[in-house]
Computed example of a mutant assay.
Amino acid sequence: MNATEKLAAVRSQFPVTKRMVYLDSAFQTPLSTNVRTALEEFYAEGHETAGPKSVWLRRVERTREQVARFLNAAPNEIAFTKNTSEGLNIAANAVPLTAGDNVVLIEGDHPNNAYAWLNLKRKGVEVRFARLADTEVATAATFASYIDERTRVVTLSHVTFHAGQVHELGSIGRLCKERGIYFVVDAMQSVGVVPVDVKALGISVLAAGTHKGLLVPQGLGILYVQDGLTELQPAYLAMSSMARPPADYIARPDDMETRHDACRFEFGNVNLPDLHALSAAIELIESVGVPEIQRHVLALGDRLIGRLDRLGVELVGPRERGQRSHIYVLALPVQKWADHFARNQVRVSPERGGIRISFGMFNTVDDVDRLADVIRDGLKEETSNAMAHVD
Rank of each mutant, 00 (worst) to 15 (best):
T139Q: 04
R356F: 00
K212S: 09
F27P: 00
L272H: 03
F267M: 04
V194Q: 07
G322D: 08
A140I: 00
Q28E: 14
D302T: 10
A114F: 10
S240K: 06
S279P: 03
A73M: 11
L23F: 13
V374E: 09
L201H: 09
T29L: 10
R131I: 11
F362L: 02
R310G: 15
L175T: 00
D302I: 05
A44H: 11
A251D: 13
S325D: 05
V159Y: 05
W337M: 10
E40H: 07
E178R: 13
G228M: 10
A331G: 07
V185E: 00
S12C: 03
E136P: 02
I181D: 00
V374N: 12
V313N: 03
V166H: 11
G170P: 01
V137S: 11
A138M: 04
T29Q: 08
T29A: 14
R303E: 14
T142M: 05
D254C: 04
E45Q: 14
A388F: 11
C263R: 15
P291R: 10
H158P: 01
H389K: 14
G219P: 09
E5Y: 04
V348R: 08
F359E: 11
I222F: 07
I250Y: 10
F362W: 14
D302E: 15
L304W: 05
P195R: 09
V193I: 15
V270Y: 00
E40N: 12
S171K: 04
L311C: 03
H158W: 00
S204G: 06
S204Q: 10
A38V: 04
G108Y: 01
S25I: 02
I282T: 10
L300Y: 12
D339L: 12
S54R: 03
E136L: 03
D134Y: 14
G289L: 06
I250G: 01
T155P: 11
L169D: 08
M188G: 07
A94G: 11
G202V: 02
L39A: 13
A3T: 12
L215T: 12
T29I: 07
T139K: 08
A114R: 12
Q345C: 08
A207P: 09
M242H: 02
T49D: 06
G124V: 08
V196H: 02
A38Y: 10
Y115Q: 12
N2W: 02
H296L: 04
L71P: 10
N102S: 12
E266P: 00
Y115W: 14
P195Y: 08
L379A: 00
V365L: 12
A44D: 11
A138D: 05
V198Y: 07
A68V: 10
A8E: 14
V313T: 07
A79M: 06
L175D: 03
L223T: 01
A92M: 06
S12K: 13
G301E: 10
T33S: 15
Y43Q: 06
N102A: 13
A68E: 11
Y43I: 03
L330C: 12
M1I: 05
D261I: 02
F129W: 00
